[in-house]
């Protein structure tokens, strides 16, 4: 399919779709966990979006539309999802361990949450989140997508979005705590911090 939008649609594509490239890039990074693969996904996403621009409904959320295309591109690049990682069971064990340490770790984490220099640590911790949690956390917490929109993009029930989001956020807190300790933002707590991976 090589349908090309009419010329007057090019400006709309530029103004509406291309301005969301940062969001598409972040989502692609969350899917691929690889810079080169993410760039390929972003490029292919925009090519498909351009050719399918006539199917975009003006007034709807263009990011939701682009995220859906990006995920399809990613799955296609992974042989239609055969290599999609599903770590629900293993992930649950990781989260259980994180929750067990939550009570003492929260106190330390709470003291640094409003620091202006926390951004890189959060980005690193996000990048280390395992799937299927990372995509949900990125879509809801970074891209401000609703549970419903996230469920649609990822093709899972809303209940799955809710449970993955809870687990993903707890894992993220655990990883953020560890990064904060490693980088000296907060002191090593008295209780041992074990790796979650």
């Amino acid at each position: 399919m090589t349908t090309e939008p009419p010329p007057d649609a090019h400006a709309a594509f530029s103004a509406v779709a291309l301005t969301a490239i940062d969001d598409v890039y972040r989502f692609a990074r969350s899917l691929t966990r690889d810079e080169v693969d993410a760039e390929d996904v972003v490029q292919e996403t925009y090519l498909r979006a351009f050719r399918s621009w006539h199917t975009f409904e003006t007034g709807t959320d263009v990011r939701r539309w682009l995220f859906t295309i990006a995920r399809n591109v990613f799955l296609r690049s992974r042989e239609k999802g055969k290599r999609e990682v599903t770590l629900d069971d293993d992930g649950a064990e990781i989260v259980d361990a994180a929750l067990a340490r939550e009570a003492w770790s929260r106190g330390g984490l709470d003291t640094i949450l409003e620091r202006a220099d926390l951004g890189p640590a959060i980005s690193t911790a996000l990048a280390e989140l395992p799937e299927p949690y990372r995509a949900v956390v990125v879509l809801v917490d970074l891209e401000d997508q609703s549970y419903e929109s996230t469920a649609e993009v990822l093709e899972v029930p809303i209940g799955t979005v809710r449970s993955r989001l809870f687990r993903g956020r707890k894992l993220l807190q655990e990883k953020l705590m560890q990064h904060a300790i490693d980088s000296g933002l907060i002191p090593q707590p008295t209780a041992p911090v074990r790796s979650t991976e």
């Binding site: 890039y25 972040r26 990074r29 949450l113 926390l118």
Partner: peptide
């Protein structure tokens, strides 16, 4: 705590751009 945590994550959004 959770509100501050989510705000910190949202603020980190600006750190990763295309």
């Amino acid at each position: 705590f959770e509100r501050r945590f989510l705000a910190a994550v949202q603020a980190a959004r600006a750190a990763e751009v295309c």
